[in-house]
């Protein structure tokens, strides 16, 4: 069963800008799906249409087989959305923000209070339940939006850059939480600018650019397409030029630092042997960029 099915979705804004030019997309039930794209590619418009925040120009959107036009209530009930920007009442307490959202989904007060407690505990905000939401830190505000989106137990959770501006520790804990939610059966669609986040969490990926899907595949298949890895090496002695090793493209970044393009067919062992033969000791090694980042740039440029 598909959690989300989009057919020929188009959106043209009043000023004539075509944000979506006929998007087709399917997300399987239970998937952890990444939707990536550069700024202005159409991600937020697409998510806005699915979440009923933006009117589409044409096309079909079905959520768990419920048409968003003709079976609106059932379709909307399946969706929980965490937008990019803070959009809760900043004068309400955290508890009220989540409780009110439960009410909008028709959950009776008593049950809504239980669900609110459960969701606030899940995002580790229970201690802040009586705090006015504007007093929360940036990371807490994002977690509050996630709690709010989960209060009606949606089958499809859409997260639009949920970890933007959040420190590493909180980001990691949010990753764990999202993985846990996904394990429990909730389909997740994630947009993010942190490509290592998409690589770590998501099983399938779509890349959107200029209002069109330019790539859609399983994450491992996409990463498998990479033929070359780029590494940065710190070396033990000063160099005046980049060593020439057949098959490897090497550049001297600074006296004690090299940047190497390593073809997968050759690997790292041979590189280390060749460097060692030239009395160049490798002190440390790191990826130049995230692997997905390299592919992403290739696809959108």
């Amino acid at each position: 069963m598909t959690a989300l099915s989009i057919q020929n979705l188009k959106k043209t804004y009043g000023n004539g800008f075509e944000a979506l030019k006929g998007v087709d997309l399917e997300v399987e039930c239970g998937d952890f799906f990444a939707l990536l794209g550069p700024n202005g590619a159409g991600k937020s418009t697409l998510i806005g249409i699915i979440s009923s925040l933006v009117n589409k120009t044409s096309g079909k959107v079905r959520v768990f087989d419920h048409d968003l036009d003709t079976d609106r209530v059932a379709a909307k009930t399946c969706i929980g959305a965490v937008p990019q920007e803070i959009n809760f009442n900043q004068f309400e307490t955290c508890f009220s923000v989540v409780l009110n959202q439960a009410g909008y989904y028709g959950i009776p007060r008593k049950l809504a209070k239980q669900r609110t407690e459960q969701c606030l505990r899940q995002v580790e905000l229970w201690d802040k339940r009586d705090t006015v939401s504007r007093r929360l830190s940036g990371g807490m505000k994002r977690r509050l939006m996630i709690a709010r989106a989960m209060v009606h137990s949606p089958r499809l959770l859409i997260l639009d850059e949920p970890t933007a501006g959040v420190d590493i520790e909180i980001r990691r804990s949010m990753w764990e939480m999202m993985q846990e939610v996904n394990k429990q059966g909730t389909t997740i669609i994630l947009t993010t600018h942190y490509l290592e986040e998409a690589e770590s969490l998501c099983r399938n990926i779509a890349i959107i650019n200029n209002g069109e899907i330019v790539e859609k595949s399983a994450m491992h298949q996409l990463l498998g397409r990479m033929h070359t890895d780029h590494f940065v090496l710190d070396v033990g002695r000063s160099l005046t030029g980049a060593p020439a090793i057949a098959g490897y493209q090497i550049e001297l970044v600074s006296e004690r630092c090299l940047e190497v393009a390593v073809p997968k067919s050759l690997g790292l062992n041979r590189l280390f042997q060749e460097l060692s033969a030239r009395q160049i000791e490798v002190l440390s090694l790191r990826n130049k960029s995230n692997r997905l980042e390299q592919l992403f740039l290739d696809l959108v440029q």
């Binding site: 979440s51 009923s52 925040l53 609106r72 209530v73 059932a74 909307k76 009930t77 969706i79 959305a81 937008p83 920007e85 803070i86 959009n87 809760f88 009442n89 900043q90 009110n100 959202q101 909008y104 989904y105 028709g106 709010r148």
Partner: peptide, 16 residues
């Protein structure tokens, strides 16, 4: 102010 603070979106995403 619901529009201004964008929490109108809470109502728009819900099946109200």
């Amino acid at each position: 102010s619901t529009k201004f603070q964008r929490h109108i979106e809470e109502l728009l995403v819900a099946p109200v």
